[in-house]
Design a protein around this nucleic acid. Structure first.
Length: 276
DNA sequence: CTGCAGGCCCTTA
DNA sequence: TAAGGGCCTGCA
């Protein structure tokens, strides 16, 4: 399916840090290559999500080939990439703030979107992300998936609640393994209830999530933004805090951005991380 | 060899 | 409620 896409850059999305399983062909390991098969180049990307593997070829700046059916494109991937949301409109709103740093950040990060990823995968992935770096996070997640299934599906709560500790060791999770095991059990016991969580507003969801061991303010905000797609969430990690301190002299209020604060956060984060 | 990477937990005061 | 030490792991 050939698509002309506005406000969309697979390359930037893949390295934006919100997802750990969109990979460039050149980035694939041996196991992934074996599953995918065939030749590739730097213009080809693979999206591992919902137990599927989507191949995306970038043809020109705006033209992409999604290797999928019309139905799956409509029902799965347009949703996943938030393609029904008008980012041009949001970007125009961001520019009206007339903030020199944000203007640069937007220009640099243009094409990033907030994906609608699987909630369970987001919870586990961001538990892993704490005090960790992207390479290690990706490796850990890959190893968990490889332990779970041949097609690299993301491991279910059932699996993670009951699997041997050896699985966690092989994934180099360190102290985070305990958090993952605990929240998997909580899910099975319905102490973590997705229906309830999804029905909550931002404030209640934040409180709810922070009750689980290993989830603090930052990770809760990541889960709300990337897993619940509440775009007013604004995760503050060391990078964002650095920007607030160095660029805004500690005077920054994300609430003025209301229901697109999370997009602003992504632009700031992406810009700052690649700028250094 | 230390220091640290997209934090969080737990203990103190 | 704020501050600070400890924490798995791998890499610079």
């Amino acid at each position: 399916m050939k698509l002309e896409l506005e406000d969309f850059s697979i390359k930037k999305i893949a390295s934006s840090g919100q997802c750990f399983r969109i990979k460039n062909f050149l980035e694939l390991n041996e196991v992934e290559k074996k599953i995918i098969g065939g030749e590739g180049s730097e213009n080809i990307w693979f999206v591992f999500a919902f137990s599927k593997i989507l191949k995306i070829t970038q043809i020109t700046e705006k033209i992409y080939d999604f290797n999928t059916s019309e139905e799956e494109l409509r029902d799965v991937w347009k949703e996943y990439f938030d393609l029904n949301n008008d980012y041009s409109k949001i970007n125009r709103k961001i520019l009206t703030a007339n903030d020199p740093y944000l203007i640069k950040a937007l220009e640099f990060s243009y094409g990033i979107r907030i994906l609608k990823q699987d909630l369970w995968e987001i919870i586990v992935s961001f538990l892993i992300s704490q005090q960790n770096n992207i390479t290690k996070i990706k490796n850990s997640i890959f190893r968990l998936c490889a332990s779970y299934s041949k097609n690299l599906s993301f491991p279910s709560p059932e699996f993670l609640a009951t699997c041997d500790d050896e699985i966690f060791k092989r994934a180099s999770l360190g102290y985070r393994a305990e958090y993952i095991k605990e929240i998997s059990k909580a899910y099975l016991q319905k102490k973590l209830d997705f229906e309830i969580l999804k029905s909550m507003d931002y404030v209640d969801a934040l409180k709810y999530l922070k009750n689980f061991k290993g989830i603090g303010d930052k990770i809760a905000n990541c889960i709300i933004l990337f897993g619940l797609h509440k775009l007013n969430a604004f995760p503050k990690d060391v990078w964002i805090n650095r920007i607030i301190k160095d660029v805004y002299n500690g005077d920054f209020n994300e609430e003025i951005f209301e229901d697109f604060a999370g997009i602003v956060q992504q632009y700031m984060f992406f810009y700052e991380r690649l700028r250094r």
